[in-house]
Design a binder for these strands. Structure first.
Length: 420
RNA sequence: GUGGGUGUAGCUCAGCUGGCAGAGCGCCAGGUUGUGGUCCUGGAUGUCGUGGGUUCAAGUCCCAUCACUCACCCCA
């Protein structure tokens, strides 16, 4: 083995890759049903877009970006998240000049230079959804409902929804100052003191028990909201209750990216160890202006496809998503028969039947083994004898029953027996 | 970035205080010259993660390095 994949890059191959496509499909279907359209955005952007959008003070920008210079001397960065790029595209192509909100989804890899761990990778897959151009709290609830339905479609019963609000540009600064005053009075280690200065909210969700204890009496955002943020938050919660989506109010929930305002939420799965966040989202009402656009509120979420795969496997065991099922398996005996079987298999496929065959001049025994493993309901056995008779042996693999069927009728008969 | 654990066949792993490289599963073939799933028999596959060191002798001991993994951190 001379080459290996770069560090921290997961790869997926059958049968496990079926879970990956199932996860994408579950969320894409939920999004499409709600009127969200697919948008394809670039994997890399101008570095400044992320620096200004995600925020210079975040760890993501300050120490985790894959930044490089291209041959033209431009500084580019592999996307560490989707929202900034999607919003940039919306503004650049004036998608926000029509009816609002603009509702979009996308999916693909994102990149962060971090120490790999279970559920944390340097290249990771996200499904992302954004609703841009309205402050209506109904849309906040809509995005949550879509994510929720995605998890439900995958049969995940143990997902928790954690809900909070971060206030707006009116009330958040006041809260931030109050929190900072509180934190400065505490005896904290150097790294945490610095975080308290740069991003004080982050100190609230420190996992270390000794820090948790000290922060226990910290002021909470929910006690510092302005009237409109409080009303917004209450409406979102009422809407979720209407939809029977259970949530937990978590006033210490913060988000790692600077752009979040008002509604913020996270989806969490209890069987994943340290990287238990399987999705997160929220409102970003100031982001458009941060990247040079007009005032344009928005809300969206990203879910971690890799982590959801782990959650599906944790709840349902590996291979639960199953794979493409073969229905008919061709077993040729000899070269002339192999040509005929290949033609038959192709004809079956064109007729909408999932069909495969034994390759490489395998013997009958080996080919039958292949038929068995394929999961097919029927094996079609064809040798010189059958060719001469103009028919094939159709074997029902579960029962072992076998009958002779004329080649001219075989596609029709098989479709019939498969209920097609 | 910090700290722990692990790297041996395609997979899961055993290999004691250094002394001939192993098992199960899988794969291939045969038992059954045209019939799978069970059973029996046989077979193939290893730079023991990589590089150095100690030793008559290293999978085993030492150092370095790479990767994986768990936690912190970060976040999806």
């Amino acid at each position: 083995m001379t080459f290996q994949a770069p560090k921290g890059v997961p790869e997926f191959w059958p049968p496990r890759s079926a879970t990956l496509t199932a996860v994408r499909t579950a969320f894409a279907d939920a999004a499409e049903r709600a009127g969200y359209g697919y948008i394809e955005v670039p994997v890399f952007e101008e570095t400044q877009l992320f620096a200004r959008g995600v925020g210079e003070s975040t760890d993501v920008v300050s120490k985790e970006m894959y930044t490089f210079e291209d041959r033209g001397g431009r500084s580019l960065t592999l996307r560490p998240e989707f929202t900034a790029g999607v919003l940039r595209s919306v503004l650049e192509h004036n998608l926000h000049t029509g009816q609002l909100p603009v509702k979009l989804w996308t999916t693909g890899p994102a990149f962060r230079y971090e120490r790999p761990q279970a559920g944390r990778y340097r290249q990771f897959q996200q499904f992302d959804l954004e609703a841009i151009g309205t402050e209506d709290p109904t849309v906040d609830a809509e995005t949550i409902a879509i994510a929720w339905d995605g998890y439900q479609a995958l049969g995940l019963s143990r997902v928790r929804l954690l809900l909070n609000t971060l206030g707006c540009k009116e009330c958040r600064p006041l809260y931030r100052a109050a929190l900072q005053d509180f934190l400065r009075a505490l005896d904290l280690d150097e790294a945490t003191r610095q975080r308290a200065e740069i991003n004080p909210l982050r100190v609230l969700d420190d996992k270390r028990p000794e820090v948790r204890a000290k922060v226990d009496a910290a002021p909470l955002i929910t006690d510092h909201l302005c009237a409109s943020c409080k009303a917004h938050h209450d409406q979102v919660r009422e809407l979720l209750a209407d939809l029977s989506i259970p949530w937990e109010d978590t006033p210490r929930l913060v988000r790692g990216l600077d752009y979040y305002t008002r509604t913020t939420y996270e989806f969490d799965h209890p069987m994943l160890g340290a990287q238990s966040g399987i999705g997160g989202g929220g409102r970003y009402d100031g982001l458009s202006e941060d990247i040079g656009g007009p005032p344009l509120p928005g809300i969206g979420f990203a879910v971690g496809v890799d982590r959801i795969i782990l959650a599906v496997e944790a709840e349902h065991g590996p291979g639960a998503a199953g794979q493409a099922r073969c229905e008919v398996y061709g077993v040729p005996l000899g070269e002339r028969a192999a040509r005929a079987v290949f033609g038959l298999v192709t004809e079956l496929r064109r007729a909408g039947v999932a069909a495969d065959m034994a390759f490489g001049g395998k013997g009958l025994k080996g080919a039958m083994k292949g038929a068995d493993r394929s999961g097919a309901a029927f094996a079609v056995i064809l040798g010189e004898r059958d060719l001469a008779a103009g028919s094939a042996q159709v074997k029902t693999l579960e029962t072992g029953e076998q009958s002779e069927v004329p080649l001219t009728e075989i596609v029709m008969k098989l479709k019939e027996r498969l209920g097609k």
